[in-house]
Design a protein around this nucleic acid. Structure first.
Lengths: 204, 204
DNA sequence: CGTAGGATGACACTTAGTGCCACCGTAGCA
DNA sequence: TGCTACGGTGGCACTAAGTGTCATCCTACG
């Protein structure tokens, strides 16, 4: 608990510094000072400098994963996402984290070090997603088809989110952010040949 | 040219050391010595120690990418892959590289540093794949749907290859390596709702 | 009040990674 | 043959990333 809070504090400080002055120009000492902890504590919580960004980047997936986790059998993906979207209510802190995560994704286009953090957190999300997909399909979590569907879903969500976020932050043309959920859901259906998306018929 | 040969030599040396004694226990000095170059040259070619593995890991994708690049419009994916598979003829050097790549993929299950290299090379492959998919679909390479299809294809190829390779190297149960191409092609079709796989009708 | 245990800080230490300059081989050119 | 321009490399000093170890502190629990 306290562990996680410290981790987050470090990650917030690190991502802000990365965004303001670049990754190379940011030292471990600066991150530690900005987070209000010692350098030693930074390296206790993170393998490398760039991996300090992971918790904040992972924040991008948190709503997505939470939504999928709570997806009931008898709703379509469209219905469930719409309902969750309505219920959504972000604290200022969460909004700030979201914004920082978006900045990291933009940075990842030019900074290989951040790209690795982004890809790692996507990989972690995939592992969390697999059992959810497995349960929905009534199959084993280590089934090869389940893994393939999971990877495909995760990949299209990643790439579409990335495009929308980068588009919104770099160009000021109004990106089609409004229907981003619809785009993602359609892509998920396409990427699974519609095996994922519809409500599940009760087999009782 | 000379650049690439040096890069490869370093990568071969590094991957072998990583496999034999682990990543943490392998120093830059050892890699340099094993590759027959100076330490300075190692860091000239690679950002980080773990990224030394990237060229060899990227080798995993080379046959896959070459096959897709040469895929003619009037063949199905099944037909083309079967033809390419028949034509395939690996030099001993290429076989050794393939083997080393497989070892790195196994290592990436337990070594986060290698996992990042693996994911980075997968990300690079995705960038190379996008224009190929775009051309096949007669759409722009930066089209959002094209990017989504590309990501889905790349993801299923990655995860299925990974499972097969890891299964073959860790368990000695005979993995279904024989029909791995068929599995991958089926997964690609599923992950694109059959938009990719069939021959393209001439529109003339 | 005493203490066991997990998290942190301090500090010395190793190794990853960079800047800088000298060197060497090769290609071009007179 | 000699001059030079240049891309790749080695050597070396240096900064910063990351680890091992021990003392300290905070908290929970009896």
């Amino acid at each position: 608990m306290q562990q996680d809070k410290t981790r987050l504090a470090i990650s917030r400080a690190a991502t802000q510094l990365f965004w303001e002055q670049g990754v190379a120009a940011t030292t471990g000492d600066q991150i530690a000072a900005a987070a209000g902890v010692s350098v030693r504590t930074v390296w206790r919580h993170f393998r490398t400098k760039e991996s300090c960004a992971e918790p904040i980047v992972a924040h991008s997936w948190s709503w997505f994963l939470a939504t999928w986790r709570s997806w009931p059998d008898d709703l379509s993906l469209e219905e469930h996402v719409a309902a969750e979207e309505k219920r959504r209510n972000l604290s200022p802190q969460q909004q700030a984290d979201d914004r920082a995560a978006a900045q990291m994704i933009v940075l990842s286009r030019t900074e290989p070090a951040i790209r690795t953090a982004f890809l790692m957190s996507s990989d972690l999300a995939e592992r969390e997603l697999a059992p959810i997909v497995a349960r929905r399909l009534r199959r084993a979590p280590d089934d090869l088809d389940v893994l393939a569907h999971t990877a495909a879903i995760n990949a299209v969500v990643r790439v579409i989110s990335e495009e929308i976020i980068v588009g919104a932050l770099t160009r000021d043309e109004r990106s089609p952010l409004a229907d981003s959920n619809a785009r993602i859901i359609n892509a998920v259906r396409t990427a699974t040949s519609n095996l994922i998306g519809d409500p599940i018929r009760r087999t009782s």
